[in-house]
């Protein structure tokens, strides 16, 4: 999945936000269709420092910088 949504990111925050909302709604529906009774879903973007030890090596608190994207029911 292209989580950055570059095509919509360049069209402005309103369109990007709408697409993230659509993404969240789709994920929620797909999970419910699979039998998982999810009540809500939050999308957030995590950023962390690069490390020669590996892509996710520093993906731990306190290195993670989190940006809230959307919340759907």
């Amino acid at each position: 999945m292209r989580a950055d949504l570059w095509t919509y990111r360049v069209q402005g925050d309103a369109i990007l936000s709408a697409q993230y909302r659509k993404m969240a709604s789709t994920i929620l529906q797909l999970e419910r269709n699979s039998g998982h009774q999810w009540k809500e879903l939050r999308l957030k973007m995590e950023e962390w420092p690069m490390s020669p030890a590996g892509y996710e090596y520093l993906r731990h608190i306190p290195f993670i910088d989190t940006t809230f994207l959307v919340y759907v029911l």
Partner: peptide
């Protein structure tokens, strides 16, 4: 349409 698709 059963997946995460964002058509133009």
């Amino acid at each position: 349409k059963e997946g995460l698709v964002f058509p133009l």
